[in-house]
Amino acid sequence: MAVLVYPENWDGKFKKLSFELVSYASKVAEMLGVQAVAVSIGSVDEGELSKLAAYGASRIISIDNGSLKSLDDQAYTSLIAEVAKSVSASVVVLSNNNTGKALAPRLSVKLKAGIASGVSRLPVSTSPFVVYKKVYSGKAFANVEIKTPVKIITLAQNSFEVTESPKPVAIEKSALQPDQNLLRTKVTDVQKQTGKILLTDADIVVSGGRGMRSADNWGPLVEMAGLLGAATACSRPVSDEGWRPHDEHTGQTGKIIAPNLYFAIGISGAIQHLAGISSSKYIVAINTDKDAPIFEAAQYGIVGDASKILPKLVEKLREVKSK
């Protein structure tokens, strides 16, 4: 028996998300009294693989094959399912990110395993196996029992602390090969953003809404994000107006994020926007309307005009940073 975890890599490197997953899986393994096994797909060198041991993986299985450069839902699913069977996994953990959303449901059918997605805590109990997850886009939570012998969990991003618990580790190169007939997704072009902090990875997010008034007023907000090492985001009307790109839209139908700190600047806090940000640890609201619903969700607030307040915040941050 084992808990199997799939920490994804990006160009051969793991990131915080991968370590969160392994930390989570190793705690679940502890609860069940079994080992945590990590499966890695793609070209990752031994030094990088061994990093997973620091977070509690006691066995790392690496499937490295030239034909696995980009995600193919069906082929990747087959490989993870093979490993799950070979290690007799009773729980399989993936991220609730783009890749996890592609693979976990297919695995569920392949392994006849019940799935709970977007889980944000350790299981409430292991027998019966009950997990706690967000429903109705964060307006509520549910305790969900998974009844099948094999269980699949996708972990909400930024919901579990990365915890070090080093274990002696065995790194194995797997002989598994992808079924060439399943590799039917042909990637023809990749466009990557460089030098920009990803919204879903960011610890701090600075977000603007209609209260920013026009596309031309974003300078101080971007500057503040730069000083904080934060990602920039926006509300739906802003991306619909074309003031900011669509990939910055946070909210129910855009990106769902859970940073440590979220600045909502000139955002009134419609229920659909709150659904995308309610898992943030701290929310700061800046709005001219003292009755705006965003202040009910926020821990810190300033009632006032963003165009007057942002320069003051930037000035103060510069002062703090220069010390």
């Binding site: 706690y132 998974i146 202040f295 009910e296």
Partner: peptide, 17 residues
């Protein structure tokens, strides 16, 4: 494969400062 046992409402956040 799964069953929702019950729902919970989110805990109210502390008042805004």
């Amino acid at each position: 494969f799964t069953e929702v046992l019950n729902y919970e409402m989110p805990k109210p956040r502390a008042a805004c400062k």
